[in-house]
Amino acid sequence: MNEVALLQNYLVVGGLLFAIGLVGFMTRRNTIVMFIALEMMMQGVAVSLVAWSRFHNDFSGQMLVIMIIAVAACEAAIALSLILMLARRSSNLDIAFWQLLREEGQEPTLDEEVPAAEIEHEPWPELTPAGVEPELDPEKVRYRSHV
């Protein structure tokens, strides 16, 4: 097996994963997608470390990846509980909602033109009303959460 070519190819894949994760972290506004991008960058680093580990016939690279996986698990637990707390306070996952925390003198991010939603509504069949409206128990109507 051509070990140098193998190392080269794995490093290219790891670098691409890192670059793609970087773009995702910089551009996306959903906190969870930002966090996925962060994990993707760590994955790129892990790919590179495994490639070097094989090239040098040395387990240290793989040991580092084991540590990375453990740290990623810790990070996921803490970050997701933070995200959940932020989402409860702002009732959405938008990172720009928290831009009041920005440094003094920074321009605020404004988004005036929100693109229209791309969801098409399914055409439900409409039924013609027929028969007598049923009598409803007022007690049940009062305590029903929704109709």
Binding site: R29, N30, A87, E118
Partner: peptide, 26 residues
């Protein structure tokens, strides 16, 4: 584990439908 945790948080926190901040990028 981690992806399942992501999905749990998404189900808990994501408003219905596509939010406007998912349709915009910095």
């Amino acid at each position: 584990a981690i992806v399942v945790m992501f999905l749990f948080v998404l189900m808990l926190a994501q408003p219905e439908g596509l939010a406007f901040y998912d349709r915009l990028a910095f």
